[in-house]
Amino acid sequence: MTALPGKTDRTLGLVIDLDTCVGCHACVVSCKEWNTGGYGAPLADADAWGAEPVGAFLNRVHTFEVTPDSGAAMNVHFPKSCLHCADAPCVTVCPTGASYKRAEDGIVLVNETACIGCGLCAWACPYGAREQDPVEKVMKKCTLCVDRIYNDNIPEQDRIPACVRTCPAGARHFGDLSDPGSEVSRLVAERGGFDLMPEQGTSPVNKYLPPRAREPESIDLAALCDTDLAEPTGFFAWLDRALERL
């Protein structure tokens, strides 16, 4: 199945708002929690309480420091999981067909029972979105919660990815990016949603919304201050006038 479907019926993915993400890691743990008892093998943690714990996570949050030419540096929290690329190199390199992209919704998945754990797909992914499970030795990646979003055992409003449902700041959005009328498409259009590493030619589905300008507003001080009351005496004269108006 390593051939990519030319076009998918829908294009499901995430839109992540870097202007809002506070870097709380809620999405990281919720993802781990949902998936460790769900799709495929559990997400193992090697040496869980020891000197070098290494666990498989499908979603991780980095923090970047951005230093402008002038002005203060800022930190930007940056969640990252599989971007479900349209031209997913991780799929085409897979020798076994374990990696595939679903024609119906574009979700990129790993069929763990077919995976030989060669790791090549992780090498092919420019985003670091695939991790081999340290115990089961099969490739793990974000499933876009395919076992939630269509799950009849879950109330309808909860048929969204675990990370989206949990995000306290509302920085994560899920939807069909091929539908220009969808909430996610609207956000991308309005806020200038962008691709990560466009130079890699992967055509990622997930989009990122940039931090909004952090320049302070220029405020017309003169218009606001109807009076300049440098001294208390002046202030009290103003006060009398103001009290008259009450």
Partner: peptide
């Protein structure tokens, strides 16, 4: 199996932080 936020709850209205999920 897992823990998620209670959507009806006045404090968190369904969301949960990293610690809560952990």
């Amino acid at each position: 199996r897992f823990i998620e936020g209670n959507r009806d709850h006045p404090v968190n209205r369904g969301v949960l932080c990293a610690k809560g999920s952990a």
